[in-house]
């Protein structure tokens, strides 16, 4: 069965209300722009979104906040989004903060069949509340759970038709872990190539983790902080 889909909307078939959706990207870098737009247009509600950030007001996951399709957000940093602030303070939106490295590891663990792991991150802080503490070699660690999503939505630079993925520069970020942690992983890519064209030694995510692929019709790749030097 081919993994290639015609559009983002077609590739999201089966997404329902109240699902957990893992979304790749860091800030606006490497986010699945077309999938987020298609998710908005599908009208599904009550979503739990797991992503390092929540986009900005009018781009990225911010689009789904504007339409109130997200019930709960699990993230490490949401400081760039005023809509988020408003909905969180009014109690419309649930929020769970997770340290960035813990979030990456929770996705990695979920995708790797590991239900939990111990980490020193967050010991003695609000993050540790209600979590098991265990001492290894004289140091305290807290138990964190692996995460699995009903869907994982990610973006890659290139894919072959089997779903082997190659990322570009820092657009890789959370995507390799997110891709492993979706029961159904959907990837939008800049270019689809035939199998055999990608060097097996240079593949970042093996195709077994990817169920659906489509070519992004366009990508804005918006820059949050354009900073340049003059000479």
């Amino acid at each position: 069965m081919s993994k290639i889909f015609d559009s983002a909307a077609a590739a999201l078939d089966g997404v329902k209300d109240n699902m957990t959706i893992i979304v790749g990207g860091f800030g606006l870098c490497g986010i699945p722009e077309n999938l987020i737009t298609a998710l908005r247009d599908s009208g599904v509600k009550g979503l739990t979104c797991v992503s390092n950030n929540a986009g900005v007001d009018d781009f990225g996951l911010g689009l789904l906040l504007q339409t109130r399709q997200i019930k709960k957000m699990l993230a490490s940093y949401v400081g760039e989004n005023a809509t988020f602030e408003k909905q969180y303070l009014s109690g419309e939106l649930e929020l769970e903060f997770c340290p960035q490295g813990t979030l990456a590891e929770r996705m990695r663990a979920g995708g790797a069949g590991i239900p939990g792991f111990y980490t020193p991150t967050g010991v003695g802080t609000l993050v540790a509340e209600g979590k098991e503490v265990k001492v290894f070699d004289g140091r305290e660690y807290i138990l964190e759970r692996g995460i699995v999503g009903d869907f994982a939505l990610v973006k890659a630079w290139k894919a072959d038709t089997f779903g082997n993925l190659v990322f570009r520069k820092t657009a890789r970020n959370f995507t390799p872990m997110a891709a492993t942690a979706g029961k159904i992983t959907v990837v939008e890519v800049e270019e689809i190539v035939p199998v055999g064209e990608l060097d097996p030694d240079q593949i970042h995510t093996p195709g077994v983790f990817v169920q659906r692929i489509f070519k992004a019709p366009s990508l804005e790749k918006r820059i949050e902080q354009r900073t340049v030097r003059t000479a």
Binding site: A75, F97, P99, Q100
Partner: peptide
Amino acid sequence: KMVKGMGGAMDLVAG
């Protein structure tokens, strides 16, 4: 006040 999140800071100080 508005809570922005810890990002990677908790991991950095722990590690």
